[in-house]
């Protein structure tokens, strides 16, 4: 076989930012042991480093009340070497994770004792994106970044806006977000995140072989993805949360100026402060319409009477860019 030029082998250098769900409430009720889960993930992380000397991994723990970087391979001189009975990577990461969990618990206690059960995915996504931006700016030669969310706890609708913003900024800087969701029901946020950014969303059905899923599906570098068929997200839940009560809704009201979503009509947009036209408002509040049509696609944008008004539309995220375009199109 003719040896390809060595240049070909360089395209797979990757920077993998892993967001690790450490929500204690989820893990205490989940069938898979956290230690079991960790050993799969750690092996996966190590395998990424094994693949290429220049590969880099960053791990961010997603807790209930805080997020934190718990591992960065660029500051670890020899992560693969044995230390105790495990690679140095393992012990360093576990050490940091322990510290993080303790801190997270304290923060939770210090804060209000609300029934928060979802992890701060928005926070860790933002941290990952910040890190990646820094890498982008470090110079012309940088590894190809991607984000992997290994998430188990359900979505927190209250984080909708923040998460969507993170997703869109990831899309804009062409960073794919892969999602390995191990919870029992699909996560709408992660589905959307992967769908919009062109990442992979997969929910492994058999958790005792988590490593196999991770290494077969999520270890694929961006370069190889051009040649490989990978599980495609089918059936993305595009529903949005309203900005006012953080409820997941099918139908709602969208501000024609800033596209904020509300589950009920308002006199004034709470996001951008636009005052909505009086006539329509009267009507809108008169008819307390909350229609739960299950699957309507983008369906609105009034065409001949719009000034600044509140428009009733379907509020799925995938449609939102469409609606945005729509509004421009109608000259609003």
């Amino acid at each position: 076989m003719a040896s390809g030029p060595s240049k070909l082998y360089a395209d797979d250098v990757s920077l993998l930012v892993v967001l690790l769900d450490t929500n204690p409430f989820f893990w205490s009720t989940f069938s898979l042991q956290f230690s079991e889960f960790l050993s799969h993930v750690l092996a996966f992380l190590n395998s990424i480093l094994l693949l290429n000397q220049l590969n880099q991994i960053v791990v961010i723990a997603t807790g209930c009340s805080s997020c934190s970087y718990i591992y960065d391979s660029s500051s670890d001189s020899n992560p693969g070497s044995e230390f105790g009975n495990m690679p140095r990577l393992y012990s360093n990461l576990l050490q940091k994770l322990e510290e993080f969990v303790a801190r997270d618990e304290q923060l939770l206690k210090a804060g209000k004792q609300g029934a928060i059960a979802s992890s701060l995915l928005s926070g860790s996504l933002s941290m990952a994106l910040c890190y990646i931006q820094r890498v982008f700016r470090s110079g012309p030669l940088h590894p190809q970044p991607r984000i992997l969310c290994i998430q188990g706890s359900p979505d927190g609708p209250e984080q909708y806006v923040a998460i969507m913003n993170a997703i869109f900024s990831a899309q804009r800087s062409t960073v794919p977000i892969d999602s390995c969701y191990i919870g029992s029901n699909n996560s709408a946020f992660l589905q959307q995140a992967s769908y919009i950014t062109g990442g992979i969303y997969y929910r492994p059905p058999q958790l005792d072989g988590l490593f196999q899923y991770l290494s077969t599906v999520f270890a694929t570098d961006l370069y190889s993805r051009a040649f490989l068929r990978l599980p495609k997200s089918v059936g993305v839940d595009f529903r949005a949360s309203c900005f006012c009560h953080k409820q997941t809704i099918d139908m709602g009201y969208v501000c024609s100026v800033c596209l904020s979503i509300f589950c009920e009509p308002h006199k004034k947009c709470s996001t951008c402060g636009s005052v909505f036209g009086q006539a329509q408002l009267d009507v809108a509040s008169e008819a307390s319409r909350k229609r739960m049509a299950s699957d309507t696609k983008w369906c609105s944008g009034s065409n001949d009477k719009i000034g600044t008004g509140i428009v009733e539309v379907c509020v799925k995220s995938a449609c939102r860019s469409v609606v945005g375009c729509f509004t421009g199109f109608l000259g609003m």
């Binding site: 390809g4 082998y9 395209d11 797979d12 094994l50 693949l51 290429n52 000397q53 077969t216 270890a219």
Partner: peptide, 21 residues
């Protein structure tokens, strides 16, 4: 083994990884 793995084309690395167990 590790050096050999690193020297492979990206797809080859992936195949090794998915056959690891």
């Amino acid at each position: 083994c590790e050096a050999i793995l690193r020297s492979m084309p990206p797809l080859g690395k992936k195949y090794v990884l998915q056959m690891l167990y």
